[in-house]
């Protein structure tokens, strides 16, 4: 139970921190700002002068931005306790799951140690796996045995079953995502009643963003059956609820699926011709929902989670800009990578 004073403090904190969120105009100016200024603004001073390889550069920028995100998360966690705190920490575990997927994928494809290591995020110890020990494993079964000795034991067990039955990485990825989102929902459900409803709505939007593009991929690209596609979907979406998902997985083409979506998704996704376009539109929808939560939600922890989601989205775009600028890529390419030509929906 969060006290009234902590609620007020956290709302004020989230509100102050929301000043750091970057609007579209600011993104435009970041694209044209001098590189040293850009690096300084995000705590990455001098990275372009260090003569790093593209891979090292990626790693350095990504690490810097994730550090920033984790520092901000630590600030928001301070007044929180109990289930609300755990929910916010659990959200941040997604970064470690990226690592987990990279590790499993790397081991499945027999990638060399350095290559896998380069793709891992450096994270705070509270969510981090023992990377070195996992990297030094020599095959997937050994990796899974090691993982079974970590807090990710449940995921590892599930991953083992999928690996032994199917031996393919996309099923593993889907299973990991499924467990992660189910865990996030479970954490939100154990929060106080006043936090629970808004949190579930926000997480529902996150799940919708995850479900729809993957539904299209599973059905149209991987040709999975409706049954298996539905099994790999995460229930409890905000607009795309379980019953609708059952109808969607039985449909054969993208236009048919998009037409069957409820408002406001139908209008937002109208005209999306590719899965990538659908993903961008869903990200935009999530952005819109999160901004609403940040401004109007009665729950402080929901505002905090909304802020972290938005900040993550912003920093990903900043990452694309800095990376493109340091590698002196074509401006159009950077604009595309940082999604700078999106249409902005008002809150």
């Amino acid at each position: 139970m969060i006290s009234m004073s902590s609620q007020s403090y956290l709302k004020a904190r989230a509100s102050v921190m929301s000043g750091q969120l970057i609007d579209e105009d600011a993104f435009e100016s970041l694209l044209h700002a001098p590189l040293p200024q850009l690096e300084g603004q995000f705590g990455l001073e001098g990275i372009s002068d260090r003569g790093l390889s593209p891979a090292e550069l990626n790693r350095t920028i990504e690490r810097g931005l994730i550090n920033q995100l984790m520092n901000e998360l630590s600030i928001l966690l301070r007044p929180l306790n109990g289930a609300a705190r755990e929910s916010l920490i659990y959200w941040s575990r997604k970064f470690e799951l990226y690592n987990l997927k990279a590790l499993i994928r790397g081991k499945l494809n027999n990638l060399p140690y350095d290559l896998i290591r380069e793709s891992l995020h450096i994270l705070p110890s509270r969510i981090s796996l023992p990377h070195e020990a996992l990297l030094r494993t020599e095959n997937v079964p050994e990796l899974l045995r090691q993982l079974e000795r970590t807090p990710y034991e449940a995921i590892a067990r599930q991953a083992r079953q999928v690996y032994e039955e199917k031996n393919e990485s996309f099923s593993l990825d889907a299973t990991i995502d499924l467990r992660y989102h189910a865990g996030l929902l479970k954490h939100a459900q154990s929060c106080d009643r006043e936090d629970q409803v808004p949190l579930l709505k926000l997480i529902g939007s996150l799940i919708d963003r995850q479900n729809l593009p993957w539904l299209l991929r599973y059905r149209l690209n991987y040709q999975l059956s409706p049954t298996e596609t539905y099994y790999l979907m995460i229930p409890s979406g905000r607009h795309i609820h379980a019953e609708l998902l059952k109808q969607l997985v039985n449909m054969q083409g993208m236009p048919q699926i998009l037409e069957a979506l409820p408002a406001p998704l139908d209008s937002r996704l109208a005209g999306s011709g590719t899965i990538m376009a659908v993903e961008l539109a869903m990200t935009e929808d999530l952005n819109h929902q999160a901004r609403r939560c940040l401004q109007f939600s009665p729950s402080a922890v929901t505002r905090s989670l909304a802020y972290m989601m938005l900040r993550e989205m912003d920093l990903r775009r900043v990452f694309a800009i800095i990376q493109g600028r340091v590698l002196t890529l074509d401006e159009q390419l950077i604009r595309q990578a940082a999604d700078l030509d999106r249409e902005v929906t008002g809150v």
Partner: peptide, 14 residues
Amino acid sequence: AREQELRSVLDTAG
């Protein structure tokens, strides 16, 4: 016809 479909999802579900 849906037997194979079932086996695949059963594997995924462990």
